[in-house]
Nucleic acid binder design. Structure first.
Lengths: 342, 342
DNA sequence: ATGAAAGCGCTAACAG
DNA sequence: CTGTTAGCGCTTTCAT
């Protein structure tokens, strides 16, 4: 079933059919209606490839997701998808699994398919790979930074400051021996978080204990493992700053399994504020990232680029810096500052 | 940058370039290597559309997901994606948001893009829409049933029996007034679950109280709302059978907010056994669905069809029926049957 | 307002 | 082993 069949049935040329598909106003009402009827009746759908061959637009964007089982990523993804949907774009979600090779493969795939743009959530890719997209003229935006060099527009949150605040919160409650558990993957954010953590400790005149700084897989299981390590230490920490809520969940689970009360014997603070974080027991004190908003802003940035590309304008890469906010709940045992609570 | 440029640079015809791209073995090693070098150097990527115009294969499958923020769906999606990845297929994930219109739109989009097959998770679509894919010769498989008529291969679990077992478990513990809270959306499964629930009650000689059967959005918030309704009833139920873990989470949260102890004053059982269900307090007793496996089996079914389509074989739609299993934890307060625990 | 015809970039017979 | 060439289905000038 192709455009020629329709043209024949209607007794017109293919050009006319093509016109009713693309510029309906330029066709006589009578012929148009006749053709439209036939199209409907025959359930004809124009061939996407033939079309793409002529246009250079696919109304598709790609979305790289580090891990689809991590609710944090999905909350961001939802934000991106909401905007894309609104613009009548289809979103290609790609599950990277924290694996550089897989991400590279997906990127190539997306480029081959000529997506109009790509949003990366915490990309693992280096300059060299990323610029493949660039060279093909495909706009790219980052959510969560990727490399120090900001060659691409990026939506990021000030992780260093957030980590500083989180650690300080633990300090204010009265803890000295504060451990930090971080997920292996988004390297730069980790570095910033470590920096913030150390700064807070130093300001409080506390020496950094490197044994307390552990990295694991960024999953509940990873958190459990980390928690177990802290438990087995000769000199246990009094508090754990976990760099994601998922990790914090794992830590708390490990504590429960070993009859260590949270927050009484061990304070735990998370990062991200995913939906579930106020459902576990004790409700998780955490750092609130505006996840959905990050997705929305990232997508907007991308569409700005797509649209300015059409007009052949060029703009310098924008950077949106968001601040995170402490969300004080129960897992650190703080009793004052109730005003800041949810 | 197209195939002609490459051909010129290499001093060969486009056909030869096309050959090294598609049937490298049929080209002399020397010419092949030369052409490959030029392709690499020029960073040439074949135009996807031109290619799709000739082949009728895109190495892409579509995956309809009712709601990306529901971990249950993402665990299934992960199973599908794992298989697709293994077969070197790219997976187009579509976030349906429990919205028929959106699902229809995504379906049309996937068809236009000529995906090689589509996996639907708990599709909302009717025969009429679904057969659009059929008519275009695009294989379709269902995970979680869609309509009574099984025109398509399907991976499903015996929800009726599972609901029966869940209710019976509540009964065995000693509860009489058992409520049922179900999510609005996968209609058929709901019907089956209600059936199983009623059967168990009847067998125990307990009259069904229709007031106890409430439907809400299938989210944590929905569960919270449902829980609240039960709390406000003149004669409160002693136990709630929630048809998803997400709902159960919400119910438990509502109980906590109202100082009703789970399981002492209110037993709660869930359905799905998502990863988080043993992290909340009390650990959730639930019905375990083999989520990842469902995704894997669904994808395999799809690839069977894709491959048998290539060979022009036709096979009757297969149906895979899985059994769910009670996962007894703490939220119902049962103390025996420890052997069945995690 | 409509038709004829020239591509878009690629693949696959068919020849050599 | 390689080149020539006819499409794949559609859009879009350029004529009429």
């Amino acid at each position: 079933m192709n455009i020629r069949h329709i043209a024949q049935k209607a007794g017109v040329s293919v050009a006319t059919v093509s016109r009713v598909l693309n510029h309906p106003e330029s066709v006589a009402t009578a012929t148009k209606e006749k053709i439209e009827a036939i199209i409907a009746q025959e359930e004809y759908t124009p061939n996407w490839f033939a079309r793409g061959l002529n246009f250079n637009k696919t109304a598709t964007i790609g979305l790289m997701i580090p891990h689809i089982m991590n609710p944090m990523h999905m909350e961001i993804a939802k934000g991106v998808e909401d905007v894309a949907q609104h613009k009548d774009y289809t979103t290609f979600m790609c599950n990277v699994e924290d694996n550089v090779e897989k991400e590279k493969q997906y990127l190539e795939n997306l480029i081959k398919r000529r997506v109009d743009g790509i949003v990366f959530i915490s990309s693992l890719l280096g300059e060299k790979d990323l610029c493949i997209a660039d060279e093909q003229g495909i706009p790219v935006v980052m959510i969560g930074e990727n490399r120090e060099t900001l060659k691409y527009p990026v939506v990021r949150v000030d992780c260093q400051n957030a980590a500083y605040e989180a650690t300080k919160h633990l300090l204010e409650i009265g803890h000295h021996d504060i451990a930090m558990l971080y997920g292996k993957k988004p390297e730069i954010e980790n570095r910033q978080k470590i920096e913030g953590y150390k700064t807070a400790l130093k300001e409080a005149g506390i020496a950094v204990n490197d044994e307390f700084i552990i990295s694991v897989e960024n999953t509940i299981e990873g958190g459990y493992l980390g928690g177990k390590k802290y438990i087995d230490m000769e000199k246990r920490p009094q508090a754990v700053f976990a760099t994601s809520d998922l990790l914090a969940f794992g830590v708390i689970d490990a504590m429960k399994d070993n009859d260590i009360s949270v927050p009484k014997e061990m304070a735990v603070i998370g990062f991200d504020n995913i939906r579930m974080s106020n459902l576990i027991e004790p409700k998780l004190t955490t750092v609130e990232k505006p996840l959905h908003k990050m997705g929305v802003l990232g997508a907007r940035l991308l569409f700005d680029m797509i649209e300015s590309k059409e007009k052949e304008e060029k703009q310098p890469p924008k950077e949106i810096l968001l601040q995170a906010k402490l969300k004080i709940r129960k897992s650190c045992g703080h009793k004052e500052r109730i005003g800041e609570m949810f």
